[in-house]
């Protein structure tokens, strides 16, 4: 499995539960040994990086001694990195935990623990952030905060790799997506092109005279399907013709618009290779 994470971008690392995301990230960070082959980061095994914490910061879930305060947790993590107290205060401010710095982490909410884990990863001022399911347990405000943090991070030329099993959750955060399934990379693409290349999208039209319009559109050679009630669904790129046909026959439209490709649909089609293969097999030569 090889994929590239370009500098100054946020890359989403996606796959269903059990597809090997966490194991891959932990292998890259030298925490688990791969059964075969080797895991390289910046072209080297993690343990051979010069000053690994300066290059990579990792958020691997919430880890802190409940009896230690947030500030002491960061100081303890900072000693081996040769980090001074000012840096500890800096990262506390970056994640907005100054007010809670003197509280034992055992009493922290999930959102605060998430922020503390991020602060810990930032201690060494790394160029690459690796985040494993960072949205787990965060409320919508926390997810929004993390999104703007990561966008800002990339805007400053830094790089991030974050894993998730929900594409929609990270679609607005990431520039690129790497999708894995059963331990293999099935897609490595720009998230904006993802939909255009792999998804179709569709046109939706609503009118009180749905049945009449459907007949007229079918006569034009368009693939029309009823979408329940007064709605019809057509393939992407047909909106203009739908409008012309309706105008020509004096049919009033309530709504006519093009839906972008459904990312989840793309995601499912890629991560269910067995189901996909069976379907294609049925229509094959």
């Amino acid at each position: 499995m090889t994929f590239t994470v370009s500098q100054g971008t946020v890359t989403g690392f996606l796959g269903p539960n059990g597809s090997g995301k966490t194991t891959t990230l932990r292998a890259l960070l030298g925490l688990v040994a791969p059964n075969s082959g080797e895991a390289l980061l910046f072209g080297r095994p993690y343990r051979e990086l010069d000053h690994p914490a300066r290059r990579v910061g990792a958020v691997l879930g919430n880890a802190s001694h409940p009896g230690r305060t947030a500030r002491d947790h960061l100081r303890a993590c900072g000693i081996p990195l040769g980090v001074n107290r000012r840096r500890v205060e800096d990262v506390l401010a970056t994640v907005g935990l100054e007010a809670a710095a003197e509280r034992p982490t055992g009493g922290f909410s999930l959102g605060m623990r998430g922020r503390l884990a991020l602060a810990t990863a930032l201690l060494g001022d790394p160029e690459l952030l690796v985040l494993d399911e960072p949205n787990g347990g965060l409320d919508p405000e926390g997810i929004g905060w993390l999104r703007s943090f990561l966008r800002d991070w990339a805007a400053r030329g830094r790089t991030a790799l974050l894993s998730s099993h929900v594409l929609a959750e990270v679609a607005q955060t990431v520039d690129n997506v790497v999708i894995i399934s059963e331990g293999r990379v099935v897609l490595d693409a720009d998230v904006r092109e993802l939909g255009h290349q792999h998804g179709r999208g569709h046109v939706e039209v609503h009118t009180p005279e749905a049945a009449r319009l459907a007949t007229l559109l079918a006569a034009e050679g368009l693939a029309v399907t009823a979408a329940g009630g007064d709605g019809l669904t057509l393939p992407a790129g047909t909106a203009a013709r739908v409008g012309q046909v309706a105008a020509r026959h004096g049919i009033a439209l309530v709504e006519l618009h093009t839906h972008g490709p459904d990312l989840e649909e793309v995601y499912f089609s890629l991560t269910r290779p067995l189901a996909g293969a069976a379907a294609t097999g049925g229509y094959g030569p």
């Binding site: 051979e48 230690r68 002491d72 000693i79 081996p80």
Partner: peptide
């Protein structure tokens, strides 16, 4: 090989700090 990793001395200091900063130890 890694040249900038903390040595045992620094790590002992880390462990002592952890003991001192946790409530009960």
């Amino acid at each position: 090989m890694a040249t900038h990793q903390a040595g045992v001395g620094v790590l002992v200091r880390t462990e002592l700090f952890k003991v001192a900063s946790s409530r009960w130890q």
